[in-house]
Design a protein around this nucleic acid. Structure first.
Lengths: 238, 238
DNA sequence: CGTTAACTTGAATTAAGTCAACTGTCGTGG
DNA sequence: CCACGACAGTTGACTTAATTCAAGTTAACG
């Protein structure tokens, strides 16, 4: 799994920091962010399948420079719920463990930057531009999470999978006219854990969508959606 | 329903604004916020059961000065999912309609302040203190929403209701030693729509928890939790 | 005190889960 | 480059938790 994507050339701490600043810190003075973030931002390289560990007693932010991750919540009895997936450029808020224990895991090889939330907030307090980007990002995540809650609470298996595929097409799909090609970095188990279903149900629903001619699959990870609009209809929006 | 709580004495726009500023705008100069927010913050009084309407095409913030609300998402086929409950002092982010349509409704009489998100952000851009409070509030909502997603995706009916009651005890319960007294402002239907279940299932689970001696009910809204710790155990955390 | 909507309870149904066997994909090493 | 092994995914039969449908009860408000 560690080489599903070609091993990236070694990326320096400086480069990752620069990437984060470019995306989330508008109007930062060159050199300034490096000094401020220098000591608290921990650069991380992880192989697919491994965890991106942060202090479980503190909220943290993780900037994902490259790769893909899942944010897992653990409940009792070994049950796991994947609360969000992330891709290159995303900034993830990883909550400290309270009711449930949270854990960020790499789906494929990742380059990331981990920062304690308190420290980042302390820096941002002096810079409204950064603060506003953090706020926009967090509102975005909130709205995504709410839409997810609707699916988990009120949709059947087919609608959940349709919604998942439409979302993935939007985020990592390669458009081909009305169609979309996706190379899923997550397993059927991950999809199941994200949609509150079992792998068997995911498999059966992939089957149904294939029958309907709305989804085509090749191998474990390649998915083609010939008609994204039709799939959206099945997702039970509105 | 409009007088479940005594009708509050008429509250002026100025008072509500002051309350919002006191909670979310540290170090604001007196008079300054009033000028900035004056034209865009819409004061609202609604009776229980009515909707707090905001422009459905724009994200909005609603500051709840008094009362209690539910944020409802509508999916296709008339299905509704309550995504969050709010109480006095809460600041609610109401998303514009995208995949699902969102709607904020009063559970009891409310005094509130509605603001278009863009306008509030434009003001906050010049004030890191306000911005930081908005960010903390939004991260808080995000973490709550994620915990909710875990329940919706991976917990059975009893665990969901136990979790709901523990949360309500924390937010609006009156502590009595190890016990907690709650006066629920929402109906069984609201609880069902929040937990992704039906009213019948909620009713049956209340019955079970009563049998177990962990929950006592009086009338439709009064709930007493003699042993919150025991209830937490049933909620399937960790 | 009477009406009405909220809630409760019971019996039948169903969507998804569980358990178990089978098949395909993909990376490794011959 | 092909064959093998291991794990990921699929398929089928059966079970179950929660829904649905249908009567009852009760609480609260006028």
């Amino acid at each position: 799994m560690s080489n599903r994507l070609h091993s990236a050339p070694p990326v320096s701490r400086k480069q990752i920091l620069a990437q984060f600043v470019a995306e989330y810190w508008p109007g930062a003075f060159p050199g300034d962010p490096a000094i401020a973030l220098g000591h608290l931002a921990l650069p991380i390289s992880v192989l697919g399948g491994r965890s991106i560990t942060t202090d479980p007693a503190k909220d943290a932010f993780v900037f994902l420079a490259s790769g893909a991750t899942k944010l897992i919540a653990k409940a009792s009895k070994g049950r796991e719920q994947i609360v969000a997936f992330h891709f290159a450029g995303d900034l993830v808020s990883v909550p400290r463990g309270s009711r449930h224990t949270y854990n960020l895991a790499a789906l494929i090889d990742c380059e990331a930057l981990a920062m304690p939330a308190d420290d980042l907030l302390a820096i941002a307090r002096r810079d409204a531009g950064l603060l506003e980007m953090l706020l926009r990002n967090s509102l975005n995540a909130l709205h995504r999470c709410r839409d997810k809650a609707v699916g988990l609470g009120r949709k059947n298996a087919q609608e959940r999978l349709a919604d998942f595929l439409v979302s993935m097409a939007e985020r990592i799909g390669a458009a081909e006219g009305g169609a979309s090609l996706i190379d899923l970095p997550m397993s059927r188990r991950d999809i199941a854990d994200s949609l509150g279903l079992t792998i068997e149900t995911i498999s059966r629903q992939f089957g149904e969508l294939r029958e309907l001619g709305i989804v085509e699959t090749a191998g474990r990870s390649r998915v083609s959606l010939p008609d994204v609009a039709a799939l959206s209809t099945l997702a039970g929006y509105r």
